[in-house]
Design a protein around this nucleic acid. Structure first.
Lengths: 269, 269
DNA sequence: CCCAATTTGTTCGTATGTATA
DNA sequence: TTATACATACGAACAAATTGG
């Protein structure tokens, strides 16, 4: 108890603990662990705890929040299941980042007939500032005509064009996004959202249908117009289910499949 | 402690506890809660604990297995996440059954443009005993030529034909399945698997692509041949990832979408 | 309608094991 | 090796939902 602590480490602990205040004041009827979850979520959402940052150790964090370690663990368990946090035994608990692996497994669903999955090579076709049409506006929960950025990509797998993407982003959330910045990003586009705009994509919902390829996408995918292709509309969401991206993907499924696993993501028997 | 217990209730508790033996003998290096999970899983898989049956109360079950309540809860937590068990506060913990709701939310992904989801009306088109072709054999992890049952259905939504299904089942797992029994089932087909053959579908994986409708399915869906349709290949699995059903669905997506949520199924705050 | 018994849900605290730096 | 972090396991108490008398 009465050991001599270096002043530096006291300061460091205090600093990492700073974003978290006790939740004793809260007197809602929600369970304590939910309140703890909310407190953590808010710290992450506000940017007080940016992606990649390690949370304080369980014992310290529990003390800071004014709950027991078990209760804190319950809260963290749920945030891990939500892909908001990542735990590593012996290292710590970290705010999740958009690694290429995560992108591949959570958000990219196109793979070869043989089941091989591969990070696509992305070619930018166009970058435009536009006004939202009705469809995109409704998907993004904004009014039609609001300023937006429209991005067109072709995704190549094993050198062949397989997916044509048209992304629509609310300009209000992506201030300062330029074509240059988009071209020069090192990782996936969701990593760019996170690092440059503080937007973390947590969930998405997709609606797929089969249509005949129109001339524009047919050319992009080097197909005959009228070829059956899959059209996937994605709404990507961040904290609080707020939509941040609307995407229309057109997939040439002559050599690839759109895969969907119907189980829990956590996995593990 | 020394209250008088009715003999009947002692017998009842003993009976519900019978399927579970202590796991103290196990000396694997897996965590205790995993061993407990395995023990529960085996009891369920063997049919000692059939679907719908309530597990013994946590305290009793923990004692029977020789672990603490907390450890048992950890095991049950995972089985709930796996859709193997269902908990209800104040009532008990039950072996999951295939309700219509579960079917709709976990295994049926077609919904109207407006997002409305509806239990389809199923019309049986054909019921045949066949030999497995290469594709179905590989999907079911059996040898080509093995005996099987092939079922063809048309699914109607709001009175219109929307999905054409071709199911292939290994005859070895569905002994005694007849067309009459299939026609007269009260619920979903997965409920029939469970009630009549002791097969619980836990997971499935689907691979989708867009193709031009062939003459056969075009007629079934009242479409012009060549219309773009979605083709979905499903492999449904039971415990231990053993495949039990191969299904080729063809979907008319002119008024409906195939939906896919990219998040965790458990949901929550 | 309320009461009492039963069952899961939440919260606490502590001790020990295991992976990492 | 040592210190730190998360992982596992135990036990106890009370809260909340359900059921049946």
């Amino acid at each position: 108890m009465y050991e001599s602590w270096p002043l530096a480490s006291i300061a460091a602990v205090a600093a990492t603990l700073a974003p978290f205040r006790s939740i004793a004041a809260e007197h809602g009827n929600a369970p304590l662990y939910r309140q703890a979850k909310r407190a953590l979520l808010e710290a992450i959402e506000d940017g007080r705890c940016p992606p990649g940052r390690a949370l304080p150790a369980e014992a310290a964090l529990a003390a800071a929040l004014g709950v027991s370690v078990g209760t804190l663990r319950h809260a963290v368990d749920e945030l891990v299941a939500d892909h908001v946090l990542v735990r590593q035994q012996g290292r710590g608990t970290f705010v999740a980042t958009h690694s290429s692996d995560r992108f591949l497994f959570q958000f990219f669903h196109v793979e070869g007939r043989d089941g091989r999955r591969e990070l696509p090579q992305v070619n930018l076709l166009s970058f435009e500032r536009e006004r939202l049409d009705d469809e995109a506006a409704s998907a993004l929960a904004l009014r039609a005509g609001a300023p937006s950025v429209a991005i067109e990509n072709v995704l190549l797998l094993q050198g062949r064009p397989v997916v044509h993407d048209r992304l629509v982003l609310p300009a209000s959330l992506f201030k300062g996004l330029t074509e240059k910045r988009l071209r020069e990003r090192p990782g996936t586009i969701y990593q760019l959202y996170q690092s440059d705009f503080g937007i973390t994509v947590l969930r998405a919902s997709e609606r797929a249908r089969a249509v005949a390829a129109d001339r524009h996408t047919a050319r992009a995918l080097q197909l005959a117009p009228g070829t059956p292709v899959m059209q996937v509309r994605r709404i990507a969401q961040t904290f609080g289910d707020r939509p941040v991206e609307y995407r229309l993907s057109t997939i040439d499924t002559s050599r690839h499949d759109y895969v969907h696993l119907l189980s829990r993501p956590g996995g593990g028997a």
